[in-house]
Amino acid sequence: MLKYVELTSEETFDLEQFQKLLSEKTKLVSVVHVSNTLGCINPVEEICSLAHQHDAKVLIDACQSVPHMPVDVQQIDCDWLVASGHKMCATTGVGFLCGKLELLQEMPPFLGGGEMIAEVFLDYSTYADLPHKFEAGTPAIGEAIALGAAVDYLSAIGMDKIHAYEAELTAYLFQQLEKIPQIKIYGPQPDAKGEGRAALAAFTVAEVHANDLSTLLDQEGIAIRSGHHCTQPLHRYLGAAATARASLSFYNTREEIDVFIKALKETIDFFTGIFG
């Protein structure tokens, strides 16, 4: 049976409800570290601690957090943590799974192929040691090298510095967006320094579909994402057909935010002229 955690009034992870859902029957808790729609940063350390009290395992989706902030897997104490390479300046088609050693040793491989076996017999096979057990066939050699280079690059900049700079950008982005009355932003508000949420803003504009908004912004050279963001149940919960999302990273600037806001206002004025 699947159970789902709902949101607080601030559109964040409802930790109190989560505690009520846990029981001796709970086997696995799967949660994002950072929501790619709401931007909320979930309390993963507390989630893991509570789940482990019921002998449940925890899988953390860190695709949205690893590229933007320091992440200490051992401190979180999750059982597995996954992330994707292309969100952290690597190529597409590569990511990683970090898991506790004893669990990885117990897990059977889900793919078969060369290099992942120790011995093959007519009626059974034995598996190679970690990590080869999970690397069936020819590995994504080039992609893995690119991922390693991306990790070195981000580490050289410093994840603390990246997080602090993105927080400043987030505060500025929200200051500018909140000046536009037609916009509704989803997720928690950042504090004055931009802390408390991820460096993104998912929003809707009254009477304008997010896809139409993003199409016109694209023609102005502004790249945002629109649609469900792979979170259709969440959008149904929010009562939004789709949202537009402006995402920031360490390579963005305040000047780029100004260009985005100017183009966004002009786009909204265009649609207002049509519908008004």
Rank of each mutant, 00 (worst) to 15 (best):
G148E: 01
C230L: 15
H68W: 03
H209R: 12
K3D: 08
S49V: 00
G158Q: 05
Y153S: 04
D152A: 07
L22A: 11
L200H: 09
E45A: 11
P43T: 06
T26E: 12
C98A: 09
E207L: 14
D218C: 13
L173M: 13
E143Y: 01
G85M: 04
L154Y: 02
E45H: 14
A128W: 02
R236M: 15
F275R: 07
G239D: 15
S226D: 15
T170V: 10
M159W: 11
A51S: 07
V58D: 00
K265L: 10
A150R: 00
Y124L: 03
I41W: 14
I180C: 04
C230M: 14
P109V: 02
S84T: 05
E11N: 11
L7P: 04
Y237S: 12
A192Y: 07
L111S: 03
L38K: 12
S249A: 15
F18K: 07
L264C: 09
I261Q: 09
A244V: 13
A223M: 15
Q64D: 02
T170E: 10
N42T: 08
S226G: 12
E135V: 03
Q105W: 03
E11V: 01
Q19M: 10
Q64E: 04
S35I: 11
D123R: 06
G85L: 02
L21H: 09
P67R: 01
S30I: 11
D258W: 09
I222W: 13
Q182E: 13
P190L: 06
L59Y: 02
L217A: 11
K265A: 11
I60V: 01
I162F: 08
G148C: 00
H86D: 04
Q182I: 05
L21D: 09
A244I: 14
P70A: 05
G142K: 01
S49L: 03
D77N: 11
K27T: 08
S249I: 14
A136H: 00
L169M: 10
A144W: 02
A164K: 11
I185H: 05
S155I: 00
I274F: 07
Y237F: 15
F121V: 03
D258V: 08
L103Y: 03
P190N: 07
L7S: 03
L130S: 01
H54V: 01
P181L: 07
F260M: 13
T12Y: 07
Y237T: 14
R254Q: 15
S9M: 08
H86W: 04
L154G: 01
S49E: 03
K193Y: 09
M1G: 03
Q75K: 13
T215A: 09
V44C: 14
L130W: 01
K100H: 02
F18Q: 05
H228Y: 11
Q17P: 10
I117K: 09
E106M: 06
G194E: 09
N42I: 07
T37M: 12
L81Q: 01
M159T: 04
G239K: 13
T126F: 05
I222C: 12
V71H: 02
M116R: 08
L216T: 07
F203V: 13
I47E: 08
A244P: 14
V34C: 10
D191V: 07
V29C: 12
W80R: 05
M107K: 03
A150F: 06
I117P: 01
K184R: 07
P139Q: 00
K179R: 07
P139R: 00
I117E: 07
G113H: 06
F260A: 10
L28E: 11
I60Q: 02
L7M: 06
H52P: 06
P109H: 02
D160K: 12
M1I: 06
Q74I: 00
